[in-house]
């Protein structure tokens, strides 16, 4: 492991040490589906919205399989699975035609792994929501379901792309990863969910103010915005705190 301080290593050769943003699979299908994917997500969400207001628990539960399918499709069609060489350490060679290393795990295994990681992140996300002020004695199914949606949107693609790379995950958790459509989508998803809390206290007495509708809505909208921004606007940028 190179012992270089990532904060102060401006003088060293950045490209060789710093992680790079994720590139899409170099196929037309990937380029098309990555644009279709947020449209599908948002329109599915829009269609289910009346049902979500009427019965959040059932709707969130029923839409989970759809979300799983959409996310798996997006990941397998568009994203390089972990270990395929395009995610963390890109080299000229891989771009020059060496298709896929035989040593990398199959897409199915990666999908399975990413799903497992997403499931494990659900209680963590639910715990975070409680720390932010979500009810702890009531509304437990709602909180768990909203966490599941957050996990599938925000954690699953990252897990698919980055696998169990510890240093990469440290970068992701410290929000220092270079922005790309995967990381941007995740960031947008969580920021959106955070902003989704804003309308809850208002005394408008609207059904859609019910827990956790605004959070999930914010997450979906934020995911789409973040993904777009990660693809076009902010690609490769890093968030500096100071």
């Amino acid at each position: 492991m190179p012992l270089i301080d990532p904060v102060t290593m401006a003088s060293t050769d950045q490209a060789s040490v710093k992680s790079q943003s994720v590139e899409l699979l170099p196929t037309d299908l990937a380029r098309i589906f990555t644009n279709v994917h947020p449209v599908l997500l948002l329109s599915a969400y829009y269609l289910r919205f009346p049902a979500l207001i009427a019965d959040p628990i059932t709707t969130l539960l029923q839409s989970l399989p759809i979300l799983v399918v959409l996310q798996i499709a997006y990941a397998t069609l568009c994203l390089p699975p972990t270990g395929s060489g395009t995610s963390s350490k890109p080299s000229k060679k891989s771009k020059l035609g060496v298709k896929k290393a035989d040593t990398s795990p199959s897409k199915a295994i990666t999908v399975f792994f990413a799903l497992i990681l997403s499931v494990f992140s659900v209680p963590v996300l639910a715990g975070l929501q409680v720390l932010f002020g979500a009810p702890i004695t009531t509304h437990i199914p709602q909180t768990l379901l909203s966490s599941s949606h957050l996990a599938l949107l925000g954690v699953f693609p990252l897990a698919y792309v980055h696998g169990s790379d510890g240093s990469k995950w440290r970068e992701i958790l410290s929000v220092y990863s270079p922005i790309d459509e995967v990381f941007g989508g995740s960031l947008g998803c969580f920021l959106g969910a955070w902003l989704g809390a804003v309308p809850i206290p208002l005394d408008w007495d609207r059904e859609w103010q019910k827990w956790p509708i605004t959070i999930v809505t914010g997450a979906y909208a934020g995911y789409a915005v973040g993904k777009l921004a990660g693809t076009w606007l902010l690609k490769g940028k890093r968030i500096e705190f100071d």
């Binding site: 904060v7 975070l128 932010f132 958790l173 410290s174 220092y176 809390a197 206290p201 705190f241």
Partner: peptide
């Protein structure tokens, strides 16, 4: 009071994120 808890937790989370960056 709920809003203040939300902000305080937000700061704590930001602090944790920043802390992970410490080398």
């Amino acid at each position: 009071d709920s809003i203040l808890l939300f902000f305080i937790t937000t700061f704590g989370l930001a602090a944790a994120i920043s802390s992970i960056r410490i080398e």
